[in-house]
Amino acid sequence: LYHVLGLDKNATSDDIKKSYRKLALKYHPDKNPDNPEAADKFKEINNAHAILTDATKRNIYD
Score class of each variant (00 low, 15 high):
residue 29 P to V: 05
residue 17 K to V: 13
residue 43 K to A: 15
residue 24 A to E: 13
residue 60 I to Y: 12
residue 31 K to W: 02
residue 52 L to D: 05
residue 9 K to Y: 10
residue 30 D to Q: 11
residue 28 H to P: 13
residue 18 K to T: 13
residue 30 D to T: 14
residue 39 A to K: 14
residue 16 I to F: 12
residue 49 H to I: 01
residue 5 L to P: 08
residue 61 Y to Q: 14
residue 10 N to D: 06
residue 17 K to Y: 03
residue 14 D to A: 10
residue 10 N to W: 05
residue 22 K to L: 13
residue 29 P to H: 03
residue 31 K to H: 09
residue 56 T to H: 08
residue 59 N to F: 10
residue 55 A to I: 05
residue 30 D to F: 00
residue 37 E to W: 10
residue 57 K to W: 00
residue 23 L to E: 12
residue 28 H to A: 12
residue 6 G to L: 02
residue 22 K to I: 09
residue 14 D to Q: 05
residue 55 A to L: 08
residue 46 N to E: 14
residue 6 G to A: 03
residue 15 D to A: 12
residue 26 K to I: 15
residue 35 N to R: 07
residue 27 Y to P: 02
residue 18 K to N: 06
residue 8 D to K: 03
residue 20 Y to G: 09
residue 43 K to R: 08
residue 17 K to D: 03
residue 29 P to W: 01
residue 42 F to H: 04
residue 50 A to P: 01
residue 5 L to R: 00
residue 41 K to H: 15
residue 15 D to L: 05
residue 24 A to K: 12
residue 27 Y to N: 00
residue 54 D to F: 00
residue 57 K to T: 04
residue 15 D to R: 01
residue 11 A to I: 00
residue 40 D to N: 07
residue 41 K to A: 08
residue 55 A to R: 10
residue 17 K to S: 10
residue 31 K to E: 11
residue 26 K to V: 10
residue 52 L to V: 03
residue 6 G to C: 03
residue 25 L to K: 10
residue 20 Y to V: 07
residue 9 K to V: 13
residue 61 Y to S: 15
residue 26 K to Q: 13
residue 54 D to V: 02
residue 60 I to P: 12
residue 44 E to S: 07
residue 51 I to R: 06
residue 3 H to Q: 11
residue 31 K to Y: 09
residue 49 H to N: 12
residue 53 T to S: 11
residue 45 I to R: 02
residue 28 H to L: 03
residue 57 K to E: 13
residue 2 Y to M: 04
residue 25 L to S: 05
residue 9 K to A: 14
residue 52 L to S: 03
residue 30 D to N: 13
residue 50 A to Y: 02
residue 56 T to R: 08
residue 9 K to F: 07
residue 41 K to E: 06
residue 33 P to G: 14
residue 5 L to E: 10
residue 56 T to D: 11
residue 54 D to Y: 00
residue 11 A to N: 10
residue 41 K to Y: 08
residue 32 N to I: 01
residue 47 N to R: 10
residue 60 I to H: 10
residue 50 A to I: 06
residue 33 P to Q: 12
residue 25 L to N: 12
residue 4 V to L: 07
residue 14 D to G: 05
residue 18 K to Y: 06
residue 16 I to T: 02
residue 31 K to L: 04
residue 28 H to Q: 15
residue 10 N to Y: 01
residue 41 K to P: 00
residue 23 L to D: 10
residue 39 A to Y: 14
residue 5 L to F: 00
residue 37 E to S: 13
residue 10 N to Q: 08
residue 46 N to L: 10
residue 61 Y to T: 14
residue 40 D to C: 13
residue 22 K to H: 15
residue 23 L to S: 04
residue 9 K to T: 07
residue 59 N to G: 14
residue 42 F to V: 09
residue 34 D to V: 02
residue 8 D to V: 01
residue 22 K to M: 15
residue 31 K to G: 06
residue 46 N to C: 15
residue 7 L to T: 01
residue 3 H to S: 14
residue 9 K to P: 08
residue 52 L to R: 03
residue 35 N to L: 09
residue 61 Y to A: 15
residue 37 E to D: 08
residue 14 D to S: 08
residue 45 I to W: 00
